[in-house]
């Protein structure tokens, strides 16, 4: 589904990702973990081509997508939910969602996708006429995810969806993520700090330390591994 091969990337002179290779299984929820500054977000952004890629390749369904611009990636079925609930604050909830499918010309198709997103997040339908900034933190995160879903992604990249949410809401967002995988038939890659709750629901885990991939396994195996303990207690920091 997604294959990263020997990727080296960063920002200008700063090299962050060092020779990372990984493969995502179709229909899986994978979580990218690691200490602060390990390059988790950078790896995610590199897939979406918003970092400087020095070498290596990214393949999406056997197709080379390294250095494709954002609009091409979106049309291919890759969506990115960035860190910190990016919404268009003075547009209505519905307009925010529609922007996610702005590249789709077929109005009926957009409307049906909208209904699908509303079915996934009923609260957004209740508040569809309200400004995005008036939503609560959890609802804003759902709006950001909902907007990404409007492009009917087959690969959904999420950068810390739990950031700044109450623990109860975090669980709800994670539950939604699993539902999304099933209802929208999407493969999901998440960068997360909030490890415990996500480890229970995700399929695969990848651990990144200082830009290098140090471990990868199924979450059930990783959970009790010594390297996970090191991540938990911050031995890498």
């Amino acid at each position: 589904m997604l294959e990263i091969k020997n990727l080296n990337a960063g920002y200008g002179e700063i090299k962050v990702i060092k020779d990372v290779s990984l493969t995502l299984q179709n229909g899986s929820v994978s979580v990218l973990m690691g200490p602060n500054g390990a390059g988790k977000s950078t790896l995610l952004k590199s897939v979406f081509n918003i970092t400087d890629i020095d070498s290596g390749k990214v393949f999406f369904e056997e197709e080379d997508i390294t250095r494709l611009p954002a609009h091409a990636l979106l049309e291919k079925g890759i969506a990115f939910v960035s860190q910190g609930r990016v919404n268009f604050s003075t547009l209505s909830v519905e307009d925010n969602l529609r922007l996610g499918a702005h590249h789709v010309q077929d109005k009926a198709e957009v409307d049906s996708r909208l209904e699908q997103v509303y079915k996934q997040f009923p609260i957004l339908k209740d508040r569809r006429k309200e400004y995005a900034f008036s939503l609560s933190g959890g609802q804003q995160q759902m709006l950001a995810i909902g907007r990404a879903l409007m492009s009917k992604p087959r690969l959904l990249l999420m950068d810390e969806p739990s950031l700044g949410l109450a623990p109860k809401l975090v669980k709800e967002v994670f539950k939604k993520i699993i539902e999304i995988r099933d209802n929208f038939d999407a493969t999901i890659l998440i960068v997360e700090h909030n490890l415990k709750s996500l480890m229970d629901v995700a399929d695969h885990g990848y651990i990144l330390v200082q830009g290098e991939l140090v471990a990868q396994d199924t979450c059930s195996k990783l959970k009790n591994s010594p390297i996970m303990k090191k991540v938990f207690v911050g031995a890498f920091d």
Binding site: F48, I50, A70, H71, S82, V86, H102
Partner: peptide, 8 residues
């Protein structure tokens, strides 16, 4: 920037 992420 958010809009750029949507490919605009």
């Amino acid at each position: 920037v958010g809009l750029q992420m949507l490919g605009k």
